[in-house]
């Protein structure tokens, strides 16, 4: 358990407790689990020609929807990581839930990690659900490197939640957390390729996107799914954002 040693005693119990509270909150639970599926189906049906195969050039033979999966998953993780979960922590701060925790041996890192674990786990379940539903509606190609896809999705989610925790560490009101989250949200979605997926994204933009957490996640997932070698740089960028995000948020964290 050396990995967990910097965390306070009871962090595991806090994770279980936050999971229980999350499962008890019907509305949030439904939204968290269904949102990625709705987003994927929505994008797939709203944009014409998503099920048509690309005749020639880059990605020839693949259906258009295949290029939308990475940015859609990226968008699906951005919502809880930048908005919902920071708002939850800010609401805890607003209500005095964190004030009570501050009187115990529990440290800020424990609070952040508990929310991160619950958020990432919920997103992974929702992703499986989205892909299962997506596969029923569209022709989704089988990933070329399934393990890489899993690693990229997991690492991308952890990196995004870590960045969101910086907002969560400071915001004194749920509404503030959501507002700040939204400011970061749209630039991130742009770099993730929601409007210029896969080969459509200009090279210069893609080069910048590699250094953003959501862009790196989208590119890494894309490489695993559609082929293109192991995206070492993107994976390293995601690890970097995770380490920096957790370190900054634990440092600037305020209890009240």
């Amino acid at each position: 358990m050396t990995v967990l040693s910097p965390l306070s005693r009871g962090t595991g119990a806090l994770v279980r407790n936050e999971t229980r509270l999350f499962l008890r909150d019907g509305g949030s639970l439904f939204f968290a689990l269904v949102f990625p599926a709705v987003l994927l189906i929505g994008v797939g049906l709203a944009i014409p020609g998503m099920d048509e195969r690309i005749p020639a050039g880059a990605g020839a033979g693949l259906p258009m929807i295949a290029f939308m999966i990475p940015p859609v998953l990226a968008a699906a993780v951005a919502t809880p990581s930048l908005s919902t979960v920071p708002a939850t922590i800010a609401a805890y701060r607003e209500q005095g839930v964190l004030t009570r925790l501050s009187t115990t041996p529990m440290r800020p890192a424990g609070v952040l990690v508990a929310q991160l674990v619950v958020g990432v786990a919920a997103f992974l379940v929702a992703t499986v659900l989205a892909l299962a539903v997506g596969a029923l509606v569209f022709t989704i190609p089988v990933p070329q490197q399934p393990l890489l896809v899993v690693v990229a999705v997991l690492l991308g989610a952890v990196a995004m939640f870590s960045v969101g925790m910086i907002i969560a560490a400071r915001a004194t009101k749920a509404a503030t957390a959501q507002g700040v989250g939204m400011l970061v949200y749209f630039p991130m979605l742009f770099f993730a390729g929601l409007w210029t997926p896969g080969p459509v994204m200009p090279d210069a933009v893609a080069a910048v996107a590699t250094w953003t957490p959501l862009g790196a996640a989208s590119q890494a997932i894309s490489a695993g799914w559609l082929g293109g070698g192991t995206p070492w740089l993107q994976l390293a960028v995601l690890v970097g954002y995770t380490v920096i995000g957790i370190a900054i948020s634990a440092r600037v964290f305020r209890w009240s």
Partner: peptide
Amino acid sequence: GMQLQAARLPGRI
């Protein structure tokens, strides 16, 4: 041990 006036718990615990 501390009980602070402003301290609360999540409603559903």
